[in-house]
Amino acid sequence: MPTFDFAAPTTLAEAVTLMASAGTVRALAGGTDLIDQLKTNRRNADLVVDLKRVPELQRLGSDADGLHIGAARCCSDLHHDPTVNRLYAGLADSTGLVGSVQIQNRAAVGGNVCNAAPSGDTTPNLLVHDAIAVIAGPSGARRVELTDFFVGPGQTVLQKGEFLQELILPAPPDDSASAYLRFIPRNEMDIAVAGVASFLHIDPATKTVKKARIALASVAPTPVRARAAEAVLEGKVISASLIDAASVAAVESATPITDVRGSAEYRKELVRVLTRRTLNICLDRIGVSL
């Protein structure tokens, strides 16, 4: 472990000041990535700032803008939250898949986002719900659409001194639902070979897709939207063949590598299958039958 100092601010203003300190400053939420990275010298730090005692970063509640998720809120709080389960079901699915129970009790969704691993399970679910990232920093707060937050593996738009304050997920309309599936070769405690989050908003009278969102994990340098697949769905009457066509189109957005967890070809096939399955789960959750 490198030598570093530690601070635990209790106000947002204090956190902004500390995060803008000289040297290498690391934001600490759940620590399940950061502390391991520090131990193994994959990241260094002069100062670690524990953001869990800042009330804004523990926020979990809805207002006119939608659901506010403080960046330090742990996965298990979201996994068990009634609103998340009712309105953002894909996020509830994914927060129960990150590591073990011990990890979910600590790991934050905001940390999953800022760690910017292409394989992060929660991120695609935030993307399909059109999440906004609220970034705090020395020159004030700014908002970025989460689709524009990721630059590369482990790389985000956060500048020196900036940190993620919260995520805002607009309230989804009636007759909509989301779902997440990932593939791993065992039942739990693994990193996604590929993951797919889907969101559908259906007109129940005509069964027309009013809005579709699909996002992919572990098949590109960053979490990505499958925009071609969304375009296949939107404005059309939902059917099994339309879902098949969208699932094929989703593969166009996947640019996976071959590595120890799976080949590029295998990952593309997983994207096709998981897209179909998650779209069908969305329909089940909305209560629309084909």
Partner: peptide, 12 residues
């Protein structure tokens, strides 16, 4: 709540 104490800093 359960936590891995190896992934908690003492001052936390």
């Amino acid at each position: 709540k359960t936590a891995c104490s190896c992934l908690v800093l003492a001052p936390e």
